[in-house]
């Protein structure tokens, strides 16, 4: 066994039924899928040996994504194309591996280097794009955009890094939004939607990119 593990970065999409899968369950799903691949997966040391796996960011329940990232570690180098192929064979259809690359072991953890996330929100016919825009802009005129999370007041305003609107795209009216995703400033689009008086269940929210430092 090679003592220095091989660090592999995987980009994948998540859609369909599996968008109702939470963070921990997604992690467990990858563990079992990795075991099915029979790749030389690195296990953690100690009494309860688990597969070493690291997801960049929790995707809120119900959202789809074309840009999720995770790291795994192997005991020996394997061709990245083979890893991708084996993983896709072992994963359910609603999760697809898009890219596999070998990365430097010394890089900081994914969570530590994650800065922001990009989302596309499909705007439902009720209230429609104009009202959505108006509510959104009204929200931004305030000095602060405060929400209460776990008994703590959080200001979302500085966490909205960018936004735009697209009318009549092939997928209907959409809003692009970039939100801060760093460990101490993590904003979620569903929090924003609630403030806009929109039920996240009425929108389709897609994460399109994770931005790292």
């Amino acid at each position: 066994m090679n003592d220095t593990p091989i660090r592999i970065r995987v980009k994948y999409s998540k859609s369909g039924n599996l968008r109702f899968l939470g963070h921990i369950d997604t992690q467990n799903l990858f563990e079992r899928a990795l075991r099915r691949t029979e790749l030389p997966i690195r296990h953690t040391q100690g009494f309860n040996k688990r597969i070493r796996i690291n997801l960049a960011s929790a995707l809120p329940l119900g959202f789809i994504s074309e840009a999720e990232i995770l790291d795994i570690w192997l005991d020996q180098p394997i061709d990245t194309e083979i890893i991708g192929k084996k993983l896709n064979e072992a994963l359910p259809d609603d999760i697809k591996v898009l890219e596999v690359q070998m990365v430097d072991n010394a890089l900081p953890s994914l969570q530590a280097s994650l800065v922001s996330s990009d989302y596309l929100i499909s705007i439902p016919a009720d209230p429609g794009l104009e009202t959505f825009k108006n509510r959104f802009q009204a929200l931004l005129t305030g000095e602060k955009i405060e929400i209460i999370k776990r008994k703590k007041t959080i200001d979302l305003k500085p966490m909205i890094l960018d936004y735009s609107f697209q009318s009549e795209s092939p997928d209907g009216d959409q809003s692009f939004i970039r939100l801060s995703s760093s460990p101490n400033a993590n904003a979620r689009p569903d929090d924003l939607l609630q403030l806009l008086e929109i039920d996240p269940a009425d929108c389709l929210v897609k994460r399109t990119k994770l931005n790292f430092s």
């Binding site: 369909g16 039924n17 599996l18 109702f20 899968l21 939470g22 369950d25 079992r32 899928a33 099915r36 329940l61 119900g62 072992a90 994963l91 359910p92 259809d93 609603d94 039920d199 996240p200 269940a201 009425d202």
Partner: peptide
């Protein structure tokens, strides 16, 4: 069904799609 799944605890119970 998809809409109500947002409003229940552990929606993964109802959607199937397992390996």
């Amino acid at each position: 069904i998809e809409k109500i799944l947002y409003h229940v605890e552990k929606p993964g119970r109802y959607v199937g799609g397992e390996h």
